[in-house]
Structure formats: C-alpha cells, structure tokens
C-alpha cells in the first residue's frame, strides 16, 4: 500500500483532460469539466497558478468580470482556485508543455520539459499569450554564450563557485541571486541602469551593505556587448549612463529582465494557426486537430475579444465536447448547479 506513494517521474499519469496553462481560463475549465465529472491536470511554466493575472498584475484592479465590480488579479485567481477545488485539479508547475503525440489508442501523450508524462483523450490549450520565458537582452552573439556562460536561472549555486559573475537587472531576481552567489563566486558585479531597485527592501539593504564593504560591485549602466571565445565568456562591457564603457571580466552573465510570452513548442503541434493564435470553431472551441481545444486569449475566431469572460464561456462549451471524447458511452444531460443534486454532490455542498 504505502509503496504506491513513490511514483517514479517517468511513469505516465492518466487523466481525462490535460490543460496547458493555469491562468484564469484554465482554472475555470477545471470547474466546467468537473461539473461533467471529468478530471483535469494542468501544466504551467510559472511556479504558481494564475497566469498573467498572478504574474503581471496581481495587485492591479480588474473591472470587467461579470458580478465583480472590482477585484485584483490575485483575488480573481484565488477565487477561481477555490471554485475549482472540489474537482481536485492536479498542478504540474514550473514546467513547459513540450512534445505532444497521438497514441495508438487515440489518446494524447504530452511530455513536459521536466519529464512529466500525461496521457488523456483531451488536450485543452489555455495558454494565454503563450509561455512565460526569460527576456533575452539584444546583444550581439548572445546565442553563442547561452547555456554555457549566459544563464537565465540558477539551477546550482555551486556551478558559479570561484567564477566572476555579472548579474544584470534591478528586481528581486537580480538582487536575490547577487546575494546568494556573492559568498560563492570569485566576484559578483551587479549591473543596473539606475541606483534604485524594485526589490524587497531587506534585499536592497543587504546589497548596499555588501557594496559599501567592497564585497560586491555595483555598476550603473546597461549591458552593451560580450567578449569571449567559442561560447566561453571573458568579459562584459557595460555602457554607463553617460555613455562611458566599463569592461568587466567575467566567466558568467545572468540577465534578469523579467519574462516575455511566446507560443513555444505548441507552435509545432500541427494546429492551424492564425499569426500567433490558434484557430478554433465557435461551437466547441476545438482546433483543427480533433481532441485538442484552445480557449482564452490564445485562440482566434471571427469576432474574438480577448476578455477573461470570453475564455470562461469558451471553457463551458469546450467541456461539453470534451465529455463526448472522454465518455463516449455515456449520455450527457445539461443541468444547473442551482437545482441538480448530482452537481451539488460533485461540488461537495450536499
């Protein structure tokens, strides 16, 4: 019994629906699918649910959600999570949906870049404007250094032991990693365009103390060029705010300029695209490939409006067709949560 709790990563997980994207629309899809008795697993690049609402504007007010005169991005996400809770969604966070293949039995097999494998008859893409990925500075020959000397995340602090590291940016990531790598690296230089930081006050204070003690360098300016040989970085040149260049010898560069969104591997799934959006019908919100749906900002159809409420509507209609794929032998009857004891049991209120 107890040894069942140890599930090796490679073992595929079988479910009804795999939702790519845990933003507001993906979360509401859990609810709509749940009412029909369908289980969902969600995959998202970010390390928490909520998508753009949680990542870009958690504190900003939203005024166009029906019956919510005003709520913040995070409040909306929190309530959607609460609404989805009875249906026990399973989140696979911090991973990007990668390869998608059709199995012999007609179901889909989706692998994430972290090695999770999910098998389901239905895939729902609710990926908003795409996956959040690090923004790459526009520097000449940057690609040559990426992966070897230029990194957008720190996987192992030890990898930077005794190296001279340049960190660029002025937010929490830049400061947190400056502080974390300073004791390990040969030298940490933080490059930022102004002498103000948008980070936790405590981190800013610690950083200032290290700079004052001469244990960490702060250079005001912006990344200008890289110098090195065959992917091995040797120096970073920073343009000062008055234009004066500063050359900093370094073996590693960590740029932290926030995240951008891109379609990513989904672009290679063979779906009909219209620019960077996925074309769907307006009855089921199914893509050009049966069994794969797209809802929310990522889809397009005549008259599409990128509103969260449109995504909610699309989720409800998608779920009807998803049910037919997941339970081909069962009849679907449409009921209301107000009156159906069956739905109320599913919601756990009866």
């Amino acid at each position: 019994m107890s040894n069942e709790t140890v599930v090796p990563l490679e073992r595929p997980i079988e479910t009804d629906i795999v939702i790519v994207g845990a933003g507001p629309v993906g979360l509401f899809a859990v609810f709509q699918a749940g009412l029909l008795g369908l289980r969902c697993h969600l995959v998202d690049c970010l390390d928490r649910p909520g998508g753009q609402c949680a990542e870009l504007y958690p504190e900003k007010p939203i005024y166009d959600i029906p019956s919510r005169p005003v709520c913040t991005g995070q409040e909306l996400v929190d309530d959607l999570l609460r609404q989805a809770e009875p249906f026990e969604p399973v989140f696979h966070l911090g991973q990007q949906a990668d390869g998608l293949t059709r199995m012999a039995d007609g179901r889909w097999r989706l692998a994430t870049d972290a090695g999770t494998v999910l098998i389901a008859p239905v895939i729902v893409i609710a990926a908003g404007a795409g996956a959040f990925v690090p923004r790459r500075p526009p520097l000449e020959n940057l690609e040559a250094y990426e992966g070897s000397s230029v990194h957008y995340a720190v996987r192992r602090i030890e990898a930077f032991r005794d190296k001279r590291v340049v960190i660029a940016g002025g937010g929490d990531s830049a400061l947190d990693w400056s502080l974390a790598l300073q004791p390990v690296a040969a030298r940490v230089t933080l490059v930022h365009r102004r002498d103000q930081f948008r980070a936790a006050p405590d981190s800013v204070e610690k950083l200032r103390a290290l700079v004052a003690a001469g244990a960490l360098d702060l250079v005001l300016g912006q990344l200008d060029s890289l110098e090195g040989d065959e992917g091995r970085l040797q120096a970073v040149t920073v343009a000062g705010n008055d234009g004066t260049p500063t050359r900093i010898e370094a073996e590693a560069l960590l740029p932290f300029f926030g995240l951008k969104m891109e379609l990513g591997p989904i672009a290679d799934w063979g779906l009909r695209l219209d620019r960077d959006l996925i074309a769907v019908d307006t009855e089921k919100f199914e893509t050009s490939v049966p069994g794969i749906f797209a809802i929310g900002d990522i889809n397009t159809y005549p008259g599409k409006l990128k509103l969260i409420l449109s995504g909610f509507h699309e989720a409800a209609l998608m779920a009807q067709q998803a049910f037919r794929y997941c339970r081909p032998e069962e009849r679907l009857i449409f009921r209301y949560t107000t009156s159906s004891t069956d739905l109320q049991k599913k919601l756990g209120v009866l």
């Binding site: 526009p138 002025g170 930022h192 365009r193 102004r194 103000q196 948008r198 300029f257």
Partner: peptide
C-alpha cells in the same frame, strides 16, 4: 513607468 523601464533594453 520608470520602474518598469528596468525590464527594457538600451534605455
């Protein structure tokens, strides 16, 4: 706006 420009390049 000034704070958000921190995430832009060649400011």
């Amino acid at each position: 706006e000034e704070a958000m420009l921190d995430e832009a390049f060649r400011v």
